[in-house]
């Protein structure tokens, strides 16, 4: 009887001080560390805006960097924005079809096959190859080798070019597009495919008329995600696109890009260029965040 009584007393006691202290300590530590994780982002966004805004005007989109020491010229980095768009266009033309077709193979035509598993694994590995190594690869394949010309059409230029940079970025974009597109294709219910087949649709028709239209949001997300990742890439551009202070003169010539401009200006000895690096960073971050925000909202809408 006394034994029973003692148990009841223990059960009605509050938790021991030690156990409560552990909870409180861990809770405090967790919030503190979380704060530490958030501080860099806050500091980063604050610095970008406070340092970038003073030099910002719409002129930066339409003018090239003013030569050092020449007063009265309007400063800008329109050439780098144009060059970035050119490089990204090349990257998209290559990576979107390749990434989508690879995804269609993994999710539809080669579904559950051994090859599809291997390709998925290789795609994951490819997505983790350092971008600087991809840049070195593009340098070796395109910048360093002789030009290829067939019937007067330049297929591959020699030397630094927007094409070489586009190929490097495409290699970085393909795995992102392929993996996200595959995920969204797989979300389409199998009954839909069977329904299409039952009505006499071929696999081709089923894929393009039934499956892809339903996963458009997911596919768009993947492309935007890849694009926002590629837009900020710098390392592979250093030795593929290189840089110029002037407007880009064609896809087969050295091309200025926004990230490389930020890098070059950050290393400059002139304060005016250092300040311009922040303005360029502000424009780049705004573009990249916009793309990733849109893609995230698209995900939320389609996947619920």
């Amino acid at each position: 009887m006394t034994n029973h009584h003692a148990t009841a007393e223990i059960l009605s006691e509050p938790l021991s001080l030690q156990r409560r202290a552990l909870s409180a300590l861990m809770m405090g530590l967790t919030y503190l560390l979380f704060l530490v994780a958030i501080i860099p982002l806050g500091s980063l966004l604050y610095t970008i805006v406070s340092q970038g805004l003073p030099r910002f005007s719409w002129n930066v989109f339409f003018h090239i960097p003013a030569p050092i020491g020449e007063a009265g010229l309007i400063d800008g980095f329109g050439n780098a924005i144009q060059g970035s768009l050119m490089v990204l266009a090349v990257a998209c033309i290559i990576s979107i079809p390749v990434g989508l077709l690879a995804a269609i193979y993994m999710a539809e035509f080669g579904r559950n096959s051994k090859t599809a598993h291997v390709i998925r694994f290789v795609t994951q590995v490819l997505s983790a190859v350092p971008s600087v190594v991809v840049g070195v690869f593009a340098y070796g394949v395109i910048v360093f080798t002789p030009a290829i010309e067939i019937g007067g059409v330049l297929l591959k230029p020699k030397g630094f070019s927007a094409v070489a940079a586009g190929v490097a970025l495409a290699v970085l974009m393909v795995p992102i597009i392929a993996l996200t597109a595959e995920e969204s294709l797989k979300l389409v219910a199998n009954a839909q495919r069977l329904g299409s087949m039952a009505l006499g649709g071929s696999r081709f028709q089923t894929t393009f008329k039934v499956v892809i239209p339903q996963s458009m949001a997911g596919i768009t997300t993947g492309v935007l995600l890849a694009l926002s990742r590629a837009a900020g890439e710098t390392a592979p551009l250093l030795f593929t696109a290189f840089f110029t202070q002037n407007w880009p003169t064609g896809f087969d010539h050295p091309t200025p890009t926004l990230p490389v401009l930020i890098y070059n200006f950050s290393q400059s000895a002139y304060t005016s260029q250092n300040e311009m690096a922040w303005t360029a960073a502000m424009v780049l971050v705004a573009l990249v965040l916009l793309a990733s925000l849109v893609s995230r909202l698209a995900v939320r809408k389609s996947f619920r």
């Binding site: 980063l44 710098t234 990230p259 930020i262 950050s266 690096a277 960073a281 971050v285 965040l289 990733s292």
Partner: peptide, 14 residues
């Protein structure tokens, strides 16, 4: 996650 979207050259500048 937003931090992952910021280009590394901008983080370098910071």
């Amino acid at each position: 996650q937003l931090l992952a979207a910021i280009p590394s050259v901008v983080i370098g500048l910071w």
